[in-house]
């Protein structure tokens, strides 16, 4: 679906279930935020399921990503304000589900736009997200190597072999294609924005809404220990740890993430 925010068209997947039907407000509104250089499709294992399980799912393409209008926004704070504008456009506070950069955006939005955020589910995050200089350089140059590097680091070691939960698909191949086809310049901007963001721990300390963290023990982009400062300060966090997942649990362990979402929405 498409809707306008600040005069720009936002594209989102909703599992083909309208979010503005007559019974709509009875169903929680879930806003899913992808990470750097990615798009709405990272949530394809959750969006459609949520939409058919008593929620309104809106997996957006962030500005300048996927099929949403640009330009991309340049800081986590601006994106958090954008989330508040999205919540307003959709007609209510949203349960934010964020991955990686999307998790930073969720934290920042919950801390500084608390009225717009009903709850948080965050995955693939640490208190800081330093970016390997070679990755940043390749992304800045729009070199496809950047997509290759990220696709290799993003998933747990099992995905070097594969066995995608979706028959016939390759997870690293799909992640690489998503990043590779992102508009020029976007990945470099996103990564620089993640590396520059140092407000995660402070934002977490200010969060008052119910929060669930889904953390992969084999995450190489934001190692499990890097999330600890956030876990320590979050007042109402529930932590789901996955022994074999890497940085992208929603793709690697879609069943576990779906049930974490169901548990979270039941208590939020």
């Amino acid at each position: 679906m498409r809707f306008d925010v600040d005069g720009r068209s936002v594209h989102a997947a909703t599992g083909a279930v309208p979010v503005d039907g007559t019974d709509a407000t009875a169903r929680p509104l879930v806003l899913l935020l992808h990470g750097a250089g990615m798009d709405r499709t990272v949530w394809s294992q959750q969006t459609r399921w949520l939409a058919h399980h008593d929620a309104r799912a809106v997996a957006v393409d962030l500005p300048g990503h996927g099929r949403s209008d640009g330009p991309p926004l340049g800081s986590i704070a601006e994106l958090a304000a954008w989330v508040a504008a999205v919540a307003e456009a959709l007609g209510g506070p949203v349960h934010v589900v964020g991955h990686s950069m999307g998790a930073f955006i969720g934290l920042e939005a919950a801390a500084h736009h608390a009225d717009s955020v009903a709850s948080l589910v965050l995955m693939g995050l640490g208190a800081a997200m330093p970016v390997h200089p070679d990755l940043q350089a390749a992304a800045d140059a729009d070199d496809p190597l950047a997509a290759d590097l990220m696709a290799g680091w993003m998933h747990g070691p099992d995905q070097k072999f594969g066995v995608n939960p979706t028959p016939g698909m390759t997870m690293t191949g799909t992640s690489r294609a998503v990043i590779e086809t992102s508009p020029d310049g976007v990945l470099g901007l996103d990564l620089a924005m993640c590396a520059a963001y140092d407000g995660a721990a402070d934002a977490a300390a200010a969060v008052t809404c119910p929060t669930t963290l889904v953390l992969g023990r084999l995450d190489r982009m934001t190692p499990r220990r890097a999330a600890q400062p956030i876990v320590d300060v979050l007042a109402h966090a529930m932590v789901v740890e996955l022994a074999t997942a890497g940085h992208a649990p929603m793709m690697e362990e879609p069943d576990v993430v779906r049930s974490a979402l169901a548990d979270h929405l039941a208590r939020a």
Partner: peptide, 21 residues
Amino acid sequence: SNPTVAVLEERLASLEGGVGA
């Protein structure tokens, strides 16, 4: 879909550098 066929599909997708097969 079938788990044995899916191995071949994923393998060929990987060898060709595609997203799936």
